[in-house]
């Protein structure tokens, strides 16, 4: 049986050179993200904005969206966002945060039940008051920051500051691009989105660390090789692994997008986008960053003296 090979052996792609394309592209995209962030803004869900979300399913037949919308707007809680989703006659309604503090939010649910309970099953009801939503924003932001600082410290100890910086640049790049995905698609940004972003942080670092691990090893082995060549070699020798792992992850996520159900679809889509971005950035963004950081300086050379004899014998 002939086995699958996505990447041929001994590739010699000049990947680092591609930064002349990848950097302007990533920079332009980041600016676009910034502009969108300031103009359009993220489509915050009720976790962060406060308010009420109701998902209901029609008991018989297709839901009449226009009728639901006018009935929901008639409840006296401002304009409701009404959307049909899925294939089973499911409708979601979102009400903005009501003035009057916590008890006012509860009134929304009471009124909506009165209006719709006869024709619809209530599948999901969520209300988040103003205080809780404020705290959730804090906790979410803190989580992302803590994760990045933690990883920076670990990489600093395990590798070198230069490599740690390269990895973090790549990770920040991936976060920005993922935020761009939220901005462009206007997918709802909620607590699960924070989970998705942190997972992407993890995956991004995973991808970068695999390449950098090789860079560190090659630095010890080839003391005279030029840095661009060395970085290209790092990427090329891990390219096959990168391709295979990305493929299996994408396969799993595609299964999740298609079969995982509407409740998880958004999360799966973001992850799918993130995995592709991470694969791109590990090769085309974080590794070329090392060109600008003097990676031969400092302890890397000294570490080479202490490297095990086996590593030298092989060179």
């Amino acid at each position: 049986m002939r086995l699958l090979r996505i990447v041929p052996d001994n590739t010699k792609f000049k990947i680092v050179k591609w930064r002349r394309l990848s950097y302007p592209f990533s920079a332009a995209y980041s600016i676009l993200v910034l502009v969108l962030f300031l103009t359009v803004g993220l489509n915050f869900g009720i976790d962060f904005r406060g308010g009420t979300l109701i998902e209901m399913q029609s008991k018989a037949g297709r839901p009449d969206i226009a009728q639901i919308r006018s009935a929901a707007n008639g409840l006296g809680f401002g304009e409701a966002e009404v959307q049909e989703f899925g294939s089973g006659g499911e409708v979601s309604m979102r009400f903005a945060l009501q003035p009057g503090g916590e008890p006012a939010q509860q009134q929304v649910v009471v009124k909506a039940r009165e209006a719709f309970a006869s024709a619809y099953d209530f599948r999901r009801v969520e209300t988040v008051g103003p205080r809780v939503s404020g705290e959730l924003v804090q906790a979410g932001t803190l989580g992302v920051v803590l994760a990045i600082v933690g990883v920076l410290i670990y990489l600093w100890f395990r590798f070198e500051m230069q490599l740690a910086i390269g990895a973090i640049v790549g990770t920040l790049h991936d976060i920005v691009l993922t935020l761009g995905f939220f901005l462009i698609t206007q997918l709802e940004f909620n607590l699960t989105s924070i989970a998705a972003i942190l997972t992407i942080v993890g995956y991004s670092l995973n991808e970068t660390v695999v390449v950098f691990d090789r860079t560190r090893e090659l630095l010890r082995r080839y003391k005279t090789m030029s840095i661009p060549d060395l970085l290209d070699l790092s990427i090329n020798s891990t390219l096959s692994r990168t391709a295979i792992t990305s493929t299996t992850t994408v396969l799993a996520l595609v299964a999740l997008v298609i079969f995982g159900g509407t409740a998880i679809e958004g999360f799966a889509l973001v992850m799918l986008f993130g995995v592709i971005v991470c694969t791109y950035s590990a090769m085309f963004v974080s590794t070329p960053v090392l060109l600008y950081l003097d990676i031969r300086a400092g302890r890397l050379d000294q570490a080479e003296e202490k490297a095990p004899a086996g590593a030298k014998a092989k060179a």
């Binding site: 670990y154 990895a167 670092l205």
Partner: peptide, 19 residues
């Protein structure tokens, strides 16, 4: 080890702050 520890750090941050 390196690639999984970095993932683990992100996961622990998620655990400690998520609900």
């Amino acid at each position: 080890i390196d690639s999984n520890v970095t993932m683990l750090i992100a996961a622990v941050a998620l655990f400690s702050l998520g609900s």
